[in-house]
Amino acid sequence: MDEYRNLTPAEIQRLEQNGCSCDNWVRVFVKDRFDPSYVSKSHFSGDIRLGVFEKEFHLAGGLRKHSGIHCAVIHHCRIGDNVVIENVQNYLANYDIGNDCFIQNIDVLLVDGKTTFGNGTAVNVLNETGGREVHITDKLSAHFAYIYSLYRHRPQLIARMKSIIDFYCEKHASDRGTVGDHCMIVNVGYIKNVRIGPYCKITGAMKLKNGSINSNEAAPVYIGRSVIAQDFIISSGSRVEGGSNIHRCFVGQACELDHHYTAS
């Protein structure tokens, strides 16, 4: 809160002149160098934090686009510095958006209630009829999964491992999602209860629900055209594209899924 302040009357007037509205402007906080000129035709509700809009994005083909918020409905979000958010068909709700993100032409991005972002999802392994399920997390290792699935003759061990999973899931459960710094989300449909790591690029995906994307600067994740993913973990350095459809899946590091790959 120390670096944020309330809007001034002049800033509120400028925002309203730009076609913006708000349920209660008192609940909107901004940084000192906030410029309302770069916010237009948007509606705000809930507790809102807005950063500064001082940089331009250099896009393919030589196009330059200045950071700002245009044509969006934003509820209970924290927006970082130098972010582009525009053409949101429905709304953004309950997300912390990192710095230097580019979000354009999406349907909805929301967190609805407390969620574990895919952590704790039971995935069938070895025997597709069940009995050796592995409860995935975004910290799952091959060693842990091997023991958890193949040592069912050690019930006390399995119970202890399950308690570790449950503790981790509860620790990281939240009613707010995150989009890390330097993410690009363009031409995407439905995103609900998904935690998105920094430097992730999502273009043209159809539906992402209840998952974690473990992207980072050294090993970014790419999710491409027509992808549907539900109850999932996608590890760092992976690419999921080409209409792939994954349900209740753990995608390991540096994997590539393409050409309508399907797994559930």
Rank of each mutant, 00 (worst) to 15 (best):
T121L: 00
A122H: 06
A122D: 08
A122I: 04
A122K: 11
V123N: 04
N124H: 14
V125R: 13
V125M: 14
L126D: 14
N127Y: 15
E128C: 09
E128D: 14
G130I: 04
G130A: 03
R132N: 15
R132H: 15
E133C: 10
E133V: 09
E133I: 06
V134L: 11
H135R: 15
H135F: 15
T137E: 02
T137A: 03
D138W: 01
D138V: 02
K139D: 09
L140Y: 03
L140I: 08
S141E: 07
H143W: 06
F144L: 02
F144T: 01
A145H: 07
Y146L: 07
S149G: 07
L150P: 00
Y151M: 13
R152M: 08
R152Q: 12
R152I: 12
P155K: 05
P155G: 04
Q156N: 14
I158W: 02
A159F: 10
M161D: 10
M161Y: 11
K162V: 02
I165W: 09
I165G: 05
F167H: 14
C169H: 07
E170N: 13
K171V: 06
K171N: 10
H172F: 13
S174D: 11
D175P: 02
D175I: 05
D175Q: 10
T178D: 10
V179N: 03
D181L: 12
C183A: 10
V186F: 06
Y190C: 02
K192S: 15
V194M: 05
R195E: 10
G197A: 11
G197D: 07
G197R: 01
P198L: 08
P198C: 09
Y199Q: 07
C200L: 08
I202W: 00
I202Q: 02
T203L: 14
T203P: 05
G204V: 05
A205Y: 02
K207D: 12
L208V: 02
N210K: 07
G211Q: 00
S212G: 04
S212Q: 01
N214R: 11
S215R: 05
N216M: 06
E217I: 10
E217S: 12
A218T: 12
A218D: 10
A219Y: 08
V221Y: 00
Y222F: 15
Y222P: 03
I223V: 07
I223T: 04
G224T: 05
G224M: 04
V227E: 03
V227Y: 03
V227C: 04
V227M: 04
I228F: 13
D231P: 04
